[in-house]
Write a protein that binds this DNA or RNA. Sequence first.
DNA 1: CGCCAGGGCCTCA
DNA 2: TGAGGCCATGGC
Length: 235
Amino acid sequence: MKDPLKIYEVLQKEYGPQGWWPLSSCKKKKGFDERGYHRREFSYPKTDAQRFEIIIGAVLTQNTSWRNVEKAMLNLEESALLDIEKIRKMKKGKLASLIRPAGYFNQKAERLIIVSKLFHDKGFAELRKQKTGELRKLLLSVKGVGPETADSMILYAFSKPSFVVDTYTRRILGRLGHDENSYEEVQQIFHSSLDPDVELFQEYHALMVEHAKQHCKTRPDCEKCPFSPKCPKRL
DNA sequence: CGCCAGGGCCTCA
DNA sequence: TGAGGCCATGGC
């Protein structure tokens, strides 16, 4: 079970449509569920405010549970500060205190301000005109934005096909028999075997996260795992 | 109490 | 380039 397309089919059948990136600000709104997923309508994000919410979330969730990220996002929203211009001009200390629940709050406050400056200076509309590769290079040149954060922004905020590789993706692929190691190597597995389809990439990554949370955990729960019969690492 | 969570930077070989 | 230390809160 090493074929990315077959893995996707198994995940899709097991967990159904996901509808990422979750928008906390849209919970229980029309088209969204209680977690902020838009499982029926895949043409998101629709506004620059939603795109920037994804950008912020991508930074806040670095090595951090989404649960804690949501607390930080709620603090920003309640202060009406979930906004690129406001974050860009905010004092680092004040921002840090608001995003405290997300952890690494000093680092992340600085990163958010730096990222805000980039999007203010360049502008979403202009950045969207860039080719995916060029956009990726630009994002990676920003301090605090590594490969996963860049790809998350590209895939979910810019709606361009760049496969997101996270710890879950590495863990799942590793257990299914892949020995590729570096970020680029793992990403290449997907880029070389799948059509560069935005919705496919978005759903695939979301499904990886769901699968890692339900079964392929640090301590694996292989009992009802859909891959269990064909997984080399099954317990 | 320890472990883990949707990483990335810096330093040092 | 790759391993190791560092950043930090909150749920279980």
